[in-house]
């Protein structure tokens, strides 16, 4: 790997050593990253899955507009989310009284807002496909609107797990929004992506690459776990 147009080579081996040494600062950064992103993913799931499933199984005025909007919001630029949230959470903003700016909570909210449209839109698509398949059977069993949402979410649980993973991946890889609303405070709101940005700016490329490897490894481990879960489910749950 060539850096800065010169002949200098980044030593990936020493980058890995740094990571594998289990440095407590590094572990705390990785831990905070996971806490923030897992919490944001679960919060977005708690809102996005029921909402997506409701839109999928209901007919009402403005439904098409909501679907178009959800699909459009999937591409929400993180920096814009970060900036809007920054202005809202700032002491001079409408939600300033909560004192959430530059806290992990602000980062969780930012990531939740960022991936909520993704989870809701993909859930809507997945559940609508299932609904086409199940509609007659569930109607014949006289399952009501709430019951069918719960049934379809359960029936689509493996597809939904993949959707949550997509959301998790996007949230974990994001840097712009958490940098703005978290402030990248050492030991408090510094996560993997903001550390990578910071260490790169300090010319500390080994550590940046090392953290990059951890981030990629994490996302890959979680993907593999989900894939294994799906494979297992295909064999056992039909």
């Amino acid at each position: 790997m060539q850096v800065n147009g010169s002949t200098r080579i980044v030593d990936v081996g020493s980058a890995l050593d740094l990571v594998l040494s289990g440095d407590p600062t590094l572990l705390r950064i990785v831990g905070l990253s996971l806490t923030v992103t897992v919490t944001a993913t679960l919060a977005a799931a708690a809102i996005g899955i029921p909402f997506g499933a409701f839109v999928a199984t209901s007919r009402f005025r403005g439904r098409s507009a909501i679907i178009v909007m959800l699909n459009a919001l999937m591409g929400l630029p993180p920096v814009v989310v970060g900036l809007a949230l920054f202005l809202a959470l700032s002491r001079s903003g409408p939600l300033g009284g909560f004192g959430l700016l530059f806290t992990p909570s602000a980062m969780i909210i930012a990531q939740t807002l960022l991936i909520l449209p993704i989870i809701a839109a993909l859930t809507r698509q997945a559940i609508e496909d299932l609904w086409l398949e199940y509609a007659h059977e569930l109607t014949a069993m006289q399952i009501g609107p709430i019951g069918r949402i719960m049934t379809l979410v359960y029936e689509g649980r493996f597809a939904l797990a993949t959707i949550l993973l997509a959301g998790f991946g996007r949230a974990a890889a994001e840097v712009g929004a958490v940098m703005i609303v978290g402030g990248n405070i050492d030991g408090f709101t510094r996560v993997m992506t903001t550390t990578i940005a910071l260490e790169t700016s300090k010319g500390n490329l080994e550590l940046a690459i090392g953290l990059g490897i951890v981030l990629i490894a994490l996302v890959m481990v979680i993907n593999a776990a989900t894939w294994a879960l799906r494979a297992w489910a295909d064999r056992h749950a039909g």
Partner: peptide, 27 residues
């Protein structure tokens, strides 16, 4: 999952201050 959200907000209320400084001092 919701616990850390609350905990984080509480944590921010401890005796801590926010100092806005420059990248040069931090870096």
């Amino acid at each position: 999952a919701l616990v850390p959200i609350g905990a984080a907000s509480v944590g921010a209320q401890e005796t801590s201050i926010v100092v806005a400084s420059t990248t040069s001092t931090e870096d």
